[in-house]
């Protein structure tokens, strides 16, 4: 499956525009899901996926398969764009709080902690590790490359995140 992605990328680097469409069709969904689960902001997630593919097009010759899978390469671009945008948004929010778009809030009336809330409550870097590991089947080494942290840190943060998720969803665990 992944081989296709690398093949399509090679074709795109040689000028095949259809190959880019195929890549977009294949990788739009995982990229969007990762960003959305991280930020819970639909418009921001769309913007980041589009910016990621813009960046891929602008620097298409920068990708080399020896450096790793194309999927990881795109996740790395998307993660960096997301962190930059979120930091910029935080600064903007402190200056002009009423101009910052508010993400759609889901029902706050439910007392029970949902898995979405529990994931959102995780510290940023732990959330990224869990999302990449569980929802995108990324090996710890690839996660380390995407997040630009040592592999040992990925392991410890994954364990910490699992512990916290279990704690947050404690009520559910008791009920099971």
């Amino acid at each position: 499956m992944n081989n296709h992605e690398e093949e399509w990328m090679a074709a795109y680097q040689k000028g095949d525009k259809e190959a880019l469409e195929k890549l977009y069709g294949r990788l739009k969904q995982p990229l969007y899901s990762f960003i959305f689960r991280y930020t819970r902001d639909e418009q921001l997630s769309i913007d980041i996926v589009q910016d990621t593919f813009m960046k891929l097009q602008d620097h298409k010759q920068n990708y080399a398969p020896e450096k790793g899978k194309l999927k990881s390469y795109l996740f790395q671009i998307a993660y960096r764009l997301m962190v930059t945008k979120l930091n910029r948004r935080k600064k903007f929010q402190s200056l002009l709080p009423f101009l910052v778009p508010r993400a759609k809030e889901e029902s706050q009336h439910i007392n029970r902690m949902t898995v979405r809330d529990a994931v959102a409550k995780l510290p940023d870097i732990e959330r990224a590790v869990v999302l990449l590991f569980y929802y995108h089947d990324m090996p710890q080494k690839e996660i380390a490359r995407i997040l630009d942290i040592p592999a040992g840190t990925v392991k410890s943060r994954l364990h910490r995140a699992i512990r916290q998720l279990k704690k947050e969803l404690e009520g559910d665990f008791d009920g099971s």
């Binding site: 898995v115 994931v119 998720l165 279990k166 969803l169 665990f173």
Partner: peptide
Amino acid sequence: YLRSKLDEY
């Protein structure tokens, strides 16, 4: 169980 909860997302 945690896996099943995560799958709900």
